[in-house]
Design a protein around this nucleic acid. Sequence first.
DNA 1: GGTTCCCGGATATTTCTTGTCCGCGTTGTG
DNA 2: CACAACGCGGACAAGAAATATCCGGGAACC
Lengths: 164, 164
Amino acid sequence: MKLSNGVEWALHSCVTLSQSREPVQATRLAELHGIPRAYLAKHLQALSRAGIVHATAGQVGGYALTRPAASVTMLEVVQAIDGIEPAYRCTEIRQRGPLAVPAEQCERPCAIARAMAAAQEAWYRALTAVSIADLAAAIDIDSDGTAMADVRRWLAESRRSLPG
Amino acid sequence: MKLSNGVEWALHSCVTLSQSREPVQATRLAELHGIPRAYLAKHLQALSRAGIVHATAGQVGGYALTRPAASVTMLEVVQAIDGIEPAYRCTEIRQRGPLAVPAEQCERPCAIARAMAAAQEAWYRALTAVSIADLAAAIDIDSDGTAMADVRRWLAESRRSLPG
DNA sequence: GGTTCCCGGATATTTCTTGTCCGCGTTGTG
DNA sequence: CACAACGCGGACAAGAAATATCCGGGAACC
Ligand code: SF4
Ligand code: SF4
């Protein structure tokens, strides 16, 4: 079981966006995190398609959160990047081989699939309980209240200096 | 997030093995489920390395559970096949870029990594709660008490007829 | 001793992730 | 209103990982 590392970038980007009311360009977000610009843009597009962020084009364009950070859950971001398909994909092997179960008995998933679905559900619940705002607040506390202020300052500064 | 489909084969194989006190060859397990024999053998080797099943060589060899089915949890099987590394791998991007956090502040994982770890823990807990014996019992109930008996009959029969 | 079967690694094939590119639409400006 | 600049969006290659397969030992049984 593996999670795309783009999830980490997307979560960090959302936390950063929650600190700015103006749109932030993909170039800035990539530079801030030291990651390839073009690839981050691809993931941001996925967030855009999921309705989590809104992209504005043009000279002063960029990305911004569409909803308040407190209403965006981690699960939404994870699913936007990694897809909504569950980790366990049942290939219905019980319908194959010499003891094949007839299809009419396979209407509802079997015990194995049910247990896996329950585990997935527990995973979803844990991620739903945490919002982007929670993350921003927790990161701020971890850094003694300087992290988010630094981000806001850097965003304001880069908007002036870098395009020059 | 994706789970190797070998997990499904391994779980089915364990349930099957729980119905037989004699060792069952990899060839039989593969035939019963209609899956490639060689690849299933590779996964069974992983189960063997994890101590879940014991392989006996020789003419009447095969695989058998080392412990009672009630004491083997789904999580053990999943981790034996899919590995124990967590789904979310933190690449410490906060230590990169213009706002890099110094390493001495990164001793404990940040809020994002903590939330992901909590979700993973919930997933583990759900899988630990279900044993192979539970699965066998549930599958038996789903089939009105015929599935496991059919498996036992097929195993006994194939041991006579097929090698001939 | 012959046979059967499991173990382990080496290897080919396919799929997915990662990474990069340029066209199109949008925005601000003259 | 036409122009030019800018960034988003999806299409396109390279790399990694999973999937699937094969064969040479070694062990147990007959
Ligand atoms: S639903 Fe259950 S029995 Fe059917 S293939 Fe999936 S795990 Fe196997
Ligand atoms: S520990 Fe937190 S801040 Fe550091 S890279 Fe992981 S998610 Fe980002």
